[in-house]
Write a protein that binds this DNA or RNA. Structure first.
Lengths: 358, 358
DNA sequence: TTGAAAGCGCTAACAC
DNA sequence: GTGTTAGCGCTTTCAA
């Protein structure tokens, strides 16, 4: 039923040579006479020989495996990233081992430990939080490690320019005549956005994770334009909260002077959309809506929505590229952000409607 | 820089015992005195010992790895499936190695070969085509294998009830007063849908792949309702064809008697949507539109669209469940379809509008 | 040009 | 209870 696949020993025996000779021929190194060469290759074909990478890895330390620890592989951004990683890894003969940390820090720790025990040669991680990074640094001491989408300090990371994109989105809205602009975002329980309005000027504090950076970029954009901005223009709901829809709806109802809204992710955009339907308002006639979203979603979403398109495939590919450079040793691990990504041709927000409010 | 992680030998040395004893303690089998037990555990903690699964796999043949060969990991259905697979595999201590076949049959072959060489204990494959299955059968001889979303004959598979869902969708439309219903679908180059209209009755021929099954269910549903149906009601475009949008638009323009359309996937739904915008018609006021789509897309898509929601997570979880039963040996490989999946509460299509046409 | 042998880290049968 | 030992499949040094 389960015919144990042929090993190099079987091939050697069939070809009537020693294991070492067979290995040399099959491995393509060392010397072998034409005679022997053919015999070995013939035997290998005959027996349908496939080398065991485990054994090879055991001996050489090269497992040809890299690990991807993702907060949610189901999320469009990360599944695109996985696609990008595979696109780079597979032609190099590498396979990707996936671990879904399900947004739990201990899941992330466990995943990293598991993948390392499988002998992965490198690790791409989209960290659950950016402020706890001991386990990441420990892992980075064992194998090359690149962070994706989120950049804990001191670790090589590939992230998109969240703050810059939000800032430009606001700028774009302003150029189209909007003055009353709102932001809708989720906040993570572990690393919340902190708004400091004690001073004259509104400040966004908190760790450098995407939601915070987007909020910061938003506020900066408003400041750039010299527009007044108060805490009331910002709608924050806890990540995956039950009552998120309700809160967004109530907020939107209360702020009926708004002519434009920036949604920090596609969940928020959906809340806004539904709220507008309830309130009998429409996009873009009554409100311009810009949303951060992955390329896949952007591709399919029904217009008119303006999107800041996050190219997960490109992010994944670049992370993998950086990782393989580190594995090869052709680059040093740098603690800087490796690149900021926007989807070509869509990095600058396009708007489908002018502001209609006064 | 890269401190080679401690092996069981190091632990044994540090604890002053033999490798076997250390192994017994760490492996939790055999006997060891309390003294020794503690010493070994202490040493292991001290050295931050992590067992090498490669070595273990080498010895025992249990790599704790399963493989997932997907036609497009970026696709919502398959990324959901991967999530479902991980959800089952991870608590069991298994990791998932991914290979993206990019819809190429030789990619699929290569992926299977690669994953097997890594010693995966089982394989989940979403086959590119259902009619070429020698390589799948060969793989299934080496390790347990379960197919996902597509069911080549004779291999255990987890698929959704594509034909049944399409049939019920038509039935539902008919109950809402629609008579003129169209189908929009892509066709694969390798395994095309074949329409036989030579007889009085329209027949859908071709291999049992999702697109064909959906078309067949559609036609069956029309027959059930006693509605006339001709080839003109079916709009087929080659998969990923450049001019797909144009063809759908032209078809829709020509068939302006239609009051409802079934879209075989989310790409087609998008084409229909765009075509309607061009033609200044709207969903659902002018046309009811039902689309087959993954749950993620369904979740986000802006209403009003009626969806036949394919629950990729459930499919993945069931495939993984079946696979682990086979790995454990607690089940025999059956050649029947293991299950037909619909998303709870959404398996029956709901319509947002009655037919408005005569 | 080829073969013998060691060893990667682990498990398990067997001896003490 | 604990130690010795062989071996999973491969690479690689060294000797022939």
């Amino acid at each position: 039923m389960k015919p144990k696949s042929a090993s190099i020993k079987d091939v050697a025996a069939a070809a009537g040579v020693s294991r070492a000779t067979a290995a040399r021929v099959l491995g393509g190194y060392g010397y072998a006479s034409g005679q022997v060469h053919e015999a070995v290759l013939g035997a290998a074909r005959e027996l349908d020989y496939a080398p065991s990478r485990m054994a090879k890895a055991m001996r050489t330390g090269q497992s040809q495996l890299i690990g991807f620890v993702s907060a949610d592989i189901t999320d469009g951004l990360f599944s695109e990233a996985l696609g990008g990683i595979c696109r780079i890894a597979e032609p190099l003969g590498y396979q990707v081992v996936v671990f879904n940390s399900a947004d739990r820090l201990d899941g992330e720790r466990e995943g990293i430990r598991n993948l390392l025990s499988h002998g992965v040669e490198g690790l791409i991680v989209s960290p659950v939080v950016v402020s706890q990074r001991e386990h990441l640094q420990a892992a980075a001491r064992a194998v090359p490690l690149v962070c994706l989408d989120r950049a804990p300090e001191g670790l090589p990371s590939v992230v998109s320019d969240n703050a810059g994109a939000a800032r430009r989105a606001v700028q774009s809205l302003v150029e189209h005549g909007h003055h009353q602009i709102g932001l809708v975002s989720s906040v993570q329980a572990e690393e919340p956005i902190v708004i400091d309005s004690s001073d004259q000027i509104l400040r966004v504090l908190g760790p450098d994770r995407p939601s915070v950076l987007r909020a910061r970029g938003f506020v900066d954009g408003m400041h750039d334009a010299g527009l007044p901005i108060g805490p009331g223009q910002l709608c924050f709901t806890p990540h995956l909260a039950e009552d998120a829809q309700l809160r967004v709806t109530q907020w939107l109802e209360a702020k009926d002077g708004l002519t434009a809204v920036l949604a920090a992710d596609s969940y928020q955009a959906r809340y806004v959309y539904r709220a507008l339907r309830l309130l009998r308002r429409r996009v873009p006639e009554d409100l311009s809506l810009i949303v951060f979203s992955d390329a896949e979603w952007t591709e399919f979403v029904v217009p008119p929505l303006d999107t800041i398109s996050l190219d997960g495939a490109e992010m994944g590919a670049r992370a993998a590229g950086a990782l393989f450079e580190l594995i090869r040793g052709s680059a040093q691990a740098t603690s800087e952000v490796i690149s900021a990504i926007h989807r070509p041709g869509q990095s600058v927000v396009t708007l489908s409607a002018e502001a209609t409010a006064t």
